[in-house]
Amino acid sequence: MALNTPQITPTKKITVRAIGEELPRGDYQRCPQCDMLFSLPEINSHQSAYCPRCQAKIRDGRDWSLTRLAAMAFTMLLLMPFAWGEPLLHIWLLGIRIDANVMQGIWQMTKQGDAITGSMVFFCVIGAPLILVTSIAYLWFGNRLGMNLRPVLLMLERLKEWVMLDIYLVGIGVASIKVQDYAHIQAGVGLFSFVALVILTTVTLSHLNVEELWERFYPQRPATRRDEKLRVCLGCHFTGYPDQRGRCPRCHIPLRLRRRHSLQKCWAALLASIVLLLPANLLPISIIYLNGGRQEDTILSGIMSLASSNIAVAGIVFIASILVPFTKVIVMFTLLLSIHFKCQQGLRTRILLLRMVTWIGRWSMLDLFVISLTMSLINRDQILAFTMGPAAFYFGAAVILTILAVEWLDSRLLWDAHESGNARFDD
């Protein structure tokens, strides 16, 4: 018995066209964080690309023209004298008006014999932002004059995390709450300039795509075929072959399989920071003279006294001054041990922890910024005066060393310790 099946006739004509040209192939790229070699397709503007294995951002879609970056830099340069030299806060102490600005706080630190601690604050609040705007201006002028731009481009990517104007702005709020127990506070004209400078700096850093600047100024022929001998440069993120001198053909720094002496430098910085954190938390970090009496505060006791007036601000200072430094030390110690013992479990967790400490590390400088600003506000000789204690130097040095330890660690070593050939990683 035959089955009668109805015929289905399409209502619209289906047209099949042959592909007349070869589909576009992607360029081969190595991930600078996990060293995976993959094919990167062509990316349009405002599109980002991520590593298929570790999800690290390979290409950032946010990109401004150099002219727009230069305009932002010149605007920031105009704001800087007002943000640093004009009063941020006014207080009335014992019937006398006192003005506080950024430069005055750094000068008070240096004047009291601790120039190293003052230079830490100076670099993060004044030096690094000033280098940022002058570097962008150098790129703008240098591109037109045919100057060598490689050193500036190499420095810009590392400079971003040292620009800490946003953290200093939080420190202004913390210092205001600490001082309000002794005097009446009012915002100064410099505060508005400083807030504007923070906003412009944040926007500029978020749109400063150094890798795209490398592509514009020093374009290189990408690798179009897969080759395990391809290496990625950690300076400019170019994937290719080393030249005859073993250097990256684009930025001219040595092109090595792994960062040289990464573990040794990381261990040295980490152990030194552990040693410095002990006096930083045991010795007094601030000293207040009130009517001839002397009151010393460690980091913890200062947080407890701050909690009596504002528990939320005390929580912020606790996280930045105690929780973050010790968390960074514990995480980095764990990561280094996992590399030495070739741990194969929990790779995803370790990668996330490394990215976390990379982002939060700079916030530990908050305590030094609060001390710097408070020193310029309260300084009335023996009637009422505020000065920093010996722990300030140890704390600042420990924070900087932990930042350097994270920067010096080559994250690809975590993958080397893991089993080879993993296309995915999980716990």
Rank of each mutant, 00 (worst) to 15 (best):
A2C: 12
T11R: 13
I14Y: 15
V16N: 10
R17P: 13
G20R: 13
Q29E: 11
C31G: 00
P32Q: 10
Q33V: 15
Q33T: 12
M36P: 00
F38Y: 15
S39L: 13
L40N: 10
N44G: 08
S45A: 10
S48R: 15
S48D: 15
C51G: 15
Q55D: 09
Q55E: 12
I58S: 09
D60A: 09
R62I: 06
D63H: 15
L66D: 15
L66Q: 05
A70M: 15
A71P: 01
A71V: 15
M72K: 04
L79Y: 15
W84Q: 08
G85T: 09
G85N: 11
E86S: 14
I91Q: 09
L94I: 09
G95L: 06
A100K: 04
A100V: 10
N101F: 02
Q104H: 12
I106R: 00
I106Y: 12
M109S: 12
Q112S: 12
G113L: 13
A115Y: 04
I116R: 06
T117W: 01
S119G: 02
M120H: 03
I126T: 05
S135P: 01
A137T: 05
L139Q: 02
L139C: 05
W140Y: 14
G142I: 02
N143Y: 15
N143E: 15
N143V: 15
L145Q: 10
P151D: 04
P151R: 01
V163H: 13
V163L: 15
I167N: 01
G171W: 00
I172A: 08
A183Y: 06
I185W: 07
V189D: 07
V189Q: 13
V189G: 09
V189W: 10
F192G: 06
S193I: 01
L197S: 04
V198E: 11
L208S: 15
N209F: 07
L213N: 13
R216Y: 11
F217C: 14
P219I: 08
D227R: 04
K229F: 07
K229C: 11
R231Y: 05
L234E: 09
F238P: 00
T239S: 09
T239W: 01
D243Q: 07
G246C: 05
R247E: 15
P249I: 07
I253D: 03
R258K: 05
R260S: 07
S262D: 04
L263V: 06
A268K: 00
A269N: 03
A269M: 04
L270E: 05
S273A: 08
S273H: 03
L276H: 04
L276V: 04
L277Y: 02
P279F: 04
P279A: 14
L282I: 05
Y289S: 01
L290W: 03
E296F: 08
E296W: 05
I303E: 03
M304Q: 09
S305Q: 06
I311Q: 11
F318Y: 10
A320M: 13
A320F: 15
V324N: 13
V324D: 02
F326D: 04
T327F: 13
T327V: 14
L337H: 12
I339F: 15
H340L: 09
F341N: 10
F341G: 11
K342V: 09
Q344S: 10
L347D: 13
I351Q: 11
L354M: 10
R355I: 09
V357F: 02
T358F: 10
T358G: 11
I360R: 00
S364E: 00
S364L: 00
M365W: 03
L366G: 13
F369W: 08
I371K: 00
M375E: 13
S376L: 10
R380K: 04
L384S: 02
F386K: 00
G396T: 02
A397F: 08
I403H: 02
I403F: 02
W408Y: 04
L409Q: 06
R412Q: 01
H418L: 10
H418R: 06
